[in-house]
Design a protein around this nucleic acid. Structure first.
Lengths: 207, 207
DNA sequence: GTCTATACTCGGATAGAC
DNA sequence: GTCTATCCGAGTATAGAC
């Protein structure tokens, strides 16, 4: 049970990821100093450089591993050949559920793109567009199948992702609504944006 | 036509607002230095302090005057007693049109809340909630009148604002779509989220 | 791997001349 | 109102001991 000093519990690199994720999400990348991250981890600032070459690489690591994880998780969640309405619903529920325990990473990936240097930006942007493409392609399939009515699938995909990302600006675990309620509300809203859903869900009020 | 040196064209204070708005929107408040703003304006950094007591006050000024302007503009745009569906449509068109020439300010007001010190945050947050309340109250009126179907007006209001704010992340003047096209697409999407609209708009695909 | 110490740069902000 | 010069703290990052 004896441990080498400095390696108690999680590996330091992981604790650095964990703490910097929190801090970047709360204050923004540029507003967080390496000293601050180090203090949160419980080491000196210089020790961070044993694990990451610099601050920028730390941000890039966080964003890339988040996007990788998101896409990998969706890959194993997606059901090939599923009807578009179900696929969209599955995606929204997946997205909200997946990001529930990762709100900081989602927030950063959405907000800190501009803090990335060109090289890292391109890498992350490619993954981000892949995810956007997942949404867009579901919308396209729905339009082709005649079950969605979407004027512009690309814009609609971005609007949906923006809507979902916005949850982070107000969601708190002890808030008025629990996660499954939020999940339900957003599923409905997204289906509406896509012009799908049972008639009575969408139109009874207007009749 | 002779002018005192340093007062050519717009007042310096306004030029400072203008340039810092651009820079804050592009790079984030924390990532922009006073020297950078000064260089963009064409003065020395120290000169900025003739117009604003410090960097934080500059940000607060930008955000407060934006929110004030937004609310004032909506006040003179809103039509008392208008039907909820028309009011919501008017709001979306107003919002998109208003923010078209002010995308930087909208972006900052949405993204830099966390950069405000507590005192300034409260002031801005109050105005922000007022605007959120405008959307929410239109939704509530629509629900009461039976023309909207919204599960949770507060969340729906936030989702709508997030959707509209998201436009800034991709809208470019020379992009694929012009502003009136975007306006139309978003008006439709927002009406759908609110569960409103003519039946054929919402439901023909599902019939 | 982590520490202390430090190099070096850049940040916000101020003083005082013009 | 703007300038030059400067203060001082904080930033990232490195060197070298342990």
């Amino acid at each position: 049970m004896a441990r080498i000093a400095g390696s108690i519990g999680a590996e330091t690199a992981d604790r650095v990821r964990e703490q910097s994720l929190k801090l970047f999400a709360a204050k923004g990348y540029a507003a967080v100093s390496m000293r601050e991250i180090a203090a949160a981890v419980g080491v000196q600032a210089a020790a961070l450089y044993n694990h990451f070459p610099n601050k920028q690489a730390l941000l890039a690591d966080l964003m890339l591993s988040h996007m990788d994880g998101l896409l990998a998780a969706w890959d194993s969640e997606a059901v090939a050949g599923e009807a578009p309405a179900e696929a969209l619903q599955r995606l929204v529920r997946f997205h909200i559920r997946y990001h529930a325990g990762r709100s900081d990473a989602v927030f950063i990936s959405y907000m800190e793109l501009r803090s990335l240097e060109p090289e890292n930006f391109m890498k992350v942007e490619k993954l981000r567009q892949t995810y956007e493409g997942v949404v867009q392609s579901i919308l396209e399939q729905g339009v082709e199948a005649g079950v969605f009515r979407v004027e512009d699938t690309r814009i609609c995909a971005m609007a949906i992702i923006a809507m979902l990302a916005g949850v982070n600006t107000w969601y708190r675990q002890k808030g008025r609504l629990n996660l499954s309620q939020i999940e339900g509300i957003y599923t409905d809203m997204v289906l509406r944006v896509a012009g799908a859903g049972r008639r009575e869900d969408l139109c009874s009020a207007a009749e």
